[in-house]
Design a protein around this nucleic acid. Structure first.
Lengths: 238, 238
DNA sequence: TAGTGGTCTAGACCACGCC
DNA sequence: GCGTGGTCTAGACCACTAC
């Protein structure tokens, strides 16, 4: 499952790209060469290369080969579901989390009506994210009790997703996100120590499990001067 | 190429999903059923379903089937390379474009150094995007003359990408984007008719051709109160 | 236990870039 | 013409869900 062939090959190739064994602008070995290198079939190689392509590590050109791309971009991706703690580990940040609130509270009315839910019990968590001694983000989470009955302050302090996935065995599958810029409530601007503006970047997420049940609603409020979102996208036809 | 089987199947299924022939929350026919329906092999069906999955139209669950997702979200995607004119056609917007500047001008120094280019000749275009009689976006494009020697005001007025792809045969492949919130120059805030703030959403894009050559740099400055970015993402393992 | 999706294989033909 | 990636096939085995 996690140890399937094409995934391992993709990991191996991406390691070699990141370590410079395949240089930027150069071609990877051809797909038929790779079948010999990894002793597998061509379709399996192609699945691995497809992974690298969506990740923005290579660009495939018909009749030519797979070109290794320059990958000096990643900064603060909000695309893909990546949580603050996972970022924290991959990036080098002196970051901390302060749990401000943890209580039972219903979903905002607009969300529960949109989800066609009738006031489901939920846990509300408000957390302040601090990077390099500066307050940067206020996160507000609503997590349905149907899936997570109990959350302790310690779990909120550490990674919630690790608790959900590793301890509870929840299968988090996908999310929709919306980024806007809005006037923040006074308590938020105060927490973020905003002086000259009350505009804040709102990232609202609806997160779902593998069986498509709605699971969590998050409002992430970012200091505008610290907000950065980096994306890689292929040109789509239609 | 554009008429390959799995693509047509994906289009057909996505039409049927959007028209409610397969209802939200229900299962699609199984993959083996679909092979019979479309008279093709299972791997081809799977490629089609993979398209629908990345597009956020279905969620596949092992041992169960492909669940049709609720797709009432799309609004103003900056993810995927979609241009203002393409949006304009798909959404219902009374939108217009005003070309403010069109001249020869070099790339900003930080970009040309980052691209390791030495002051390549480029065309500079500044355009104001107006929706429902309101100024919403100022776009500034730098397009390398190496690939597009001449751009007329009429082309800038209409879709540049249509000119590049259909007339010049350029193959636009991918882009990196960065979204930030910054203080805008006075002329921009004036164009966008901003009164209470001078904060503006910057979307900077580097666009590349299929052969990985750098092609275009765009700075898109959005009125913060009109900016909206919607995204769909799958949970990624590492 | 039956049906589902996930993976893998070994072959085939095609369109494209390059020489 | 040769090598490349893009597509498609018909089969196989496995892991998971549901009953």
């Amino acid at each position: 499952m996690v140890v399937c062939k094409y995934w391992q090959i993709a990991q191996d190739l991406s390691e070699k790209i990141k370590h410079g064994q395949y240089a930027t602008g150069e071609l990877l070995p051809s797909e038929t060469d790779l079948t010999r290198l990894y002793n597998t079939s061509r379709e399996t190689i192609r699945k691995a290369l497809a992974e690298l392509s969506v990740a923005g590590l290579i660009q495939k050109v018909k009749g030519k080969g797979s070109i290794v791309l320059n990958t000096a971009r990643f900064a603060f991706p909000v695309s893909d579901i990546v949580t603050f703690n996972e970022l924290n580990q991959s990036e080098q940040m002196r970051a901390q989390t302060k749990v401000l609130q943890l209580k039972n509270q219903q979903l905002p009315a607009d969300i529960s009506s949109r989800m066609r839910l009738r006031q489901p019990p939920a846990t509300f968590i408000q957390r302040l994210r601090i990077v390099n001694e500066e307050p940067v983000i206020v996160d507000e989470d609503y997590i349905l009790k149907k899936f997570v009955p109990v959350i302790t302050e310690e779990q909120a302090q550490n990674s919630l997703y690790s608790y959900f996935e590793n301890d509870l065995g929840l299968k988090i599958a996908y999310a929709t996100k919306m980024i806007t810029v809005e006037t923040a409530p006074a308590d938020i601007t105060k927490l973020l120590k905003l002086a000259t503006t009350d505009l804040v970047v709102f990232v609202r997420s609806l997160t779902y499990l593998q069986d498509t049940s709605f699971f969590q609603y998050t409002i992430s409020m970012h200091r505008p001067d610290k907000f950065k979102f980096v994306d890689f996208a292929h040109r789509k036809k239609l």
